[in-house]
């Protein structure tokens, strides 16, 4: 029979405490330590069961996942082993990410690679099949309502009420975030002015061009002054002039300490804007780093070459 005394409990508690201290100083190894803590706790529970009639004084206190993932509070988005399956199809296959506050992070990948599915899980539109993620320190499975208060989402296809005027659309979504009327008007004015939609803001969106709809789509995503912004292909369908203007606009957001997660097909857009990029293919994260790091690592002249080398090789290898 396994015997255990109070000293064992104290030793075990000390071990856990040491691990936690270690975790605080080694943020990069957090995910691995989390698994070790899990295993340790399981072992404690197993040992407790082996001693009949004895109640352990050892309390296994689980930290909240966000505390363990992000002890220094520097991360805006943390993704751990995220999986999404639709029937037999695995759209996202075990993605791990740590996006820092104030970072402009690009998510690249061919069509159907799993970029939008990943974002949809982060904003609560899809439930992960496996794994977990936190946005702004909140767990996507438990604290979705809190997440929705601090994010702005710009969907791939412009989602606006066509029978409403541009301004009415923006005011509607501002009201859904329960914004103060004056602040809402002020921000709407500022965005319409900056985007060049001031004149059109009092016209029904039905008459907008594709580019104007995309700009309105972006304004709606930003109206609540979100801390974390998800931009899903925000510049598709914009002419080069408006696209450049939107790049400047997105760049300005970064200056305001916003965390931006950008998915795009335009590799030059990612190269110009992003601090780091992650390349997803077949639902897996196959490259991660700053554009310069990736170019150096893959001996490429630009990010597009990196993209083609990595994703092209996977096609040739039949992955």
């Amino acid at each position: 029979m396994v015997m255990r005394n109070t000293n064992d409990d104290e030793k075990m508690q000390n071990l856990i405490d040491e691990f936690k201290k270690d975790i605080s100083s080694k943020n990069n190894e957090i995910l691995g330590y989390h698994d070790k803590i899990d295993a340790l706790e399981q072992e404690i529970i197993r040992l407790q069961k082996l001693i009949p009639g004895e109640t352990s004084k050892l309390k296994v206190k689980r930290e909240k996942p966000e505390d363990i993932f992000d002890p220094d509070g520097a991360s805006a988005v943390i993704v751990k082993d995220l999986v999404k399956q639709f029937g037999d199809v695995t759209a996202v296959n075990g993605i791990n990410l740590d996006i820092k506050k104030g970072e402009l992070f690009g998510l690249l990948g061919p069509n159907g690679a799993g970029k939008t599915t990943t974002i949809n899980m982060l904003v609560g539109l899809l439930d992960p099949t496996e794994g977990t993620a936190s946005v702004g320190g909140y767990d996507v499975k438990r604290d979705l309502n809190k997440i929705k208060e601090i994010i702005g989402v710009c969907p791939q296809e412009p989602a606006v009420f066509k029978f409403l005027k541009g301004r009415e659309n923006v005011e509607l979504f501002g009201n859904l975030f329960e914004m103060d009327k004056n602040v809402l008007k002020e921000r709407a004015d500022k965005f319409f002015e900056a985007s060049g939609l001031k004149e059109a803001s009092n016209r029904k969106a039905k008459g907008y061009s594709g580019g104007m709809l995309r700009q309105l789509n972006l304004i709606i995503a930003l109206i609540n002054d979100p801390k974390i912004i998800f931009l899903d292909e925000p510049t598709v369908g914009m002419d080069p002039r408006v696209r450049r203007k939107t790049w400047t606009f997105i760049g300005d957001l970064k200056q305001k300490d916003k965390t931006i997660i950008l998915t795009t097909h335009y590799i030059e857009e990612a190269e110009a804007l992003c601090d780091r990029v992650g390349i997803i293919d077949y639902g897996e994260l196959i490259a991660l780093g700053s554009p310069k790091e990736l170019m150096k690592k893959h001996d490429a002249k630009n990010l597009e070459e990196v993209f083609m080398k990595i994703t092209g090789r996977r096609i040739l290898e039949g992955v």
């Binding site: 539109l125 994010i151 969907p155 296809e157 989602a159 606006v160 009420f161």
Partner: peptide, 14 residues
Amino acid sequence: ESGLLKRINVTPTT
């Protein structure tokens, strides 16, 4: 169809 339900779903609206 026009993605508006999704868009409303990512706001705090219940």
